[in-house]
Amino acid sequence: MQGTEARLLSSFSLFSLKIPVDTSPPKRRLPPQLPCKDKNLEQSFRFSRRDAAFLSLISISPLSKSDSALAFGISGPKDWLKGQKKKASKFLLAPIDASRNSLQAAYILLMDSNSAKPDDELGEIQRLLKSAARDCVPEERNSFVSFQAKTGVEVCTFRLVVKNASSLLDDKNPVKLEAEAMLDDLIRSFTSLTVLANEVNIQVASSRQKLAGAVKDTISSLGTFEQGIKDCLEV
């Protein structure tokens, strides 16, 4: 009898124990953070048409001659606007960085001659080059962007960059004229690159090298254009 009672007491004591239970809500698992370098690279690829459209809204009209007199010898409106331009320089240069990243990615693919799927690789290269051109090659625009261009809307991102960066400069200012000339050279470079990418057979080593060389030349033109924009912004 005592053994039975002991067993009952033992069972009762087990059920009467208060086991602490964590009632707090489960913690959400956050995705792993990208390294700083990769995160910046990812953000630079995200320069979209919405950002390009915003460029057309922040353009500042050049001041008149009477207004520019206020900036002589004192800190006037023109000096203040120049300061705002410098602050916005990071945004104005963002599409150039994004295009450079796309071109470099295409160049890396072209330099890798051991691809198992050349057709898929060519499609990816063409996509990267189209993205890098920022709607500045008319033949590569989609129907909606082409329609916008026909209605008078500026769709070429690089042209919008020049317009905004040089908006405080006179029309005959040599820095502005040089930036516009660099823009024309850049668009010609992208146009030639696009034509070559649509015609070349990347399975042929010599053709692959030719396209890689054209990509490298366009990267160089893009760097020259970037310096022209920096000169306009005085940064």
Rank of each mutant, 00 (worst) to 15 (best):
D22M: 07
K117V: 07
S16I: 09
K210W: 05
A197C: 01
V161D: 04
S143M: 06
T157W: 08
S13G: 09
T224G: 08
Q104T: 11
A165S: 13
R208Y: 06
W80S: 10
V204S: 02
E140F: 08
E42L: 15
D112E: 04
D170P: 01
L183S: 01
E5L: 15
S192K: 13
N173P: 00
N198Y: 04
Y107I: 09
T194S: 15
V137P: 03
L34P: 02
L81K: 11
S16M: 12
P31M: 07
K150F: 09
I108Q: 01
L169Q: 08
I202L: 05
N198R: 11
E121H: 07
N198E: 11
K37F: 12
S206Q: 10
A105S: 14
V155S: 03
A106I: 03
L168Y: 01
R141T: 09
A214T: 03
L57V: 08
S143A: 14
S68C: 05
L70H: 12
R159D: 04
Q126I: 09
L17C: 07
P95C: 04
R50S: 11
N201W: 03
V175H: 01
K37D: 03
E139M: 07
L63R: 07
G223R: 09
T23Q: 10
K85Y: 07
L186C: 02
V145G: 01
E154C: 08
F12P: 00
K39Q: 06
S102L: 11
L110T: 03
L70A: 10
F147S: 13
R46I: 06
S99R: 03
S56D: 14
L129V: 14
Q148V: 00
F47I: 06
V21S: 07
Q84N: 08
E234Q: 13
I96W: 09
L55I: 05
S44T: 00
A69N: 09
D135A: 09
K130W: 02
K163S: 12
D185K: 12
D231S: 12
A132W: 08
S207N: 14
S61L: 14
S221N: 14
A69F: 10
S64A: 11
S220P: 00
G213N: 14
S99K: 02
I202F: 03
S220H: 12
L129M: 06
V162E: 00
V155P: 04
P25Y: 06
L193P: 01
N142D: 15
R141V: 13
Q33E: 10
A212K: 06
I60K: 08
Y107G: 00
K230Y: 04
V162C: 10
Y107P: 00
Q33H: 05
D67G: 07
S207Q: 14
D184K: 13
D231T: 06
L55V: 05
A205N: 04
A106N: 04
A165M: 07
K210Y: 09
E5T: 13
Q33R: 11
N101M: 11
L110P: 01
G228Y: 08
S75C: 10
K18L: 15
G3F: 15
S207L: 03
V155W: 02
